[in-house]
Amino acid sequence: MTSPVLEPVAELAAPSRGSLSHRLRRAVRRNRVLTVGTLLLGLIVVMVIVLPFFLPSSTATDPANRLLAPSGEHLLGTDLYGRDVLSRLVEGGRASLGMAVLITLCAGTAGMMIGMISGYFRAADAILMRVMDAWMAFPGIILATALAVAFGASMWTVLTALSVIFTPFVARVIRSRVLGVATKSFIEAARVSGMGRWKILFVHIFPNVLPLAVVQVIILAAAAMLIDGALSFLGLGIAPPTPTWGNMIAEGRAYMHDAPWLVIVPGLAIIMCVYLFNLVGASLRLVVDPRSRTLSELQRLRARGQGPRRRQANDADGAEPRTGELKQPAEPIDERI
């Protein structure tokens, strides 16, 4: 990373100081995608938590009003038992988002521990990573099916199966980062200072790996949500009548022709959340990882493919407008970064 050619850029990327609110405002301006994505995701979470208190019960059946189209009374219509789809959507969001978060937490924590240990203790590495390889080779859906058949489909079987599937992915990414941090001489300096190996792992390596782990975990949440949805759809996840977005789609499938909103609404909800998770994860990576930040800035510069800019005053007095960038409209400096 410290290619001699890159040094000037690295210097520019150094953190500048200022008041907290000023820094926050600047961070928001620099990362519009991240800000908008996080706000939208936050909004969804708040809605899912708060709305059920104001909506009709999601389990109240009303056979007289089954399969109603969206209207003022039922904003998103009703399903085949006459239940309000909006209520079920929000309630299902609790289950689906909640599952995604739980799976992420379990797989993230386990993967983080395994990754850190195998990255730092070389002796453990050979064994742990071979176990992870074998683990990764095991088909996840079959594991989930087997667990569901053996213990009955429930939250716990899904949680176990999906945590098991995702752990090795997290572990691999974390391990590769730990390998990089462990070669830095501040790790040796800590040993010279008399710090124990486990303490070094938590005092020096963990904080330096954490930002990447957070990014990894957010992107993991998107994948967890997708697979959780698929399992629910197959009837291997949380069982009806508790709604989840996956089993809502499964139930609505039979009425796709007459009541398409039964499938479209939860489908859109899944797409939206997965998209936002991915977006937030990717843009957060640009913020926390100096390497990818520098690289993305470099990429932007090259993509523009311009020559060196010359000052307006200089251009005015006769320098012929042959410079590549002069063909493009001059853009305000602020928007370039």
Binding site: V9, L12, L301, R309, R310
Partner: peptide, 13 residues
Amino acid sequence: IRLFEFIAPVYTD
């Protein structure tokens, strides 16, 4: 050799 413009937003005079 005009390589600096590839690694930083640069103005020359």
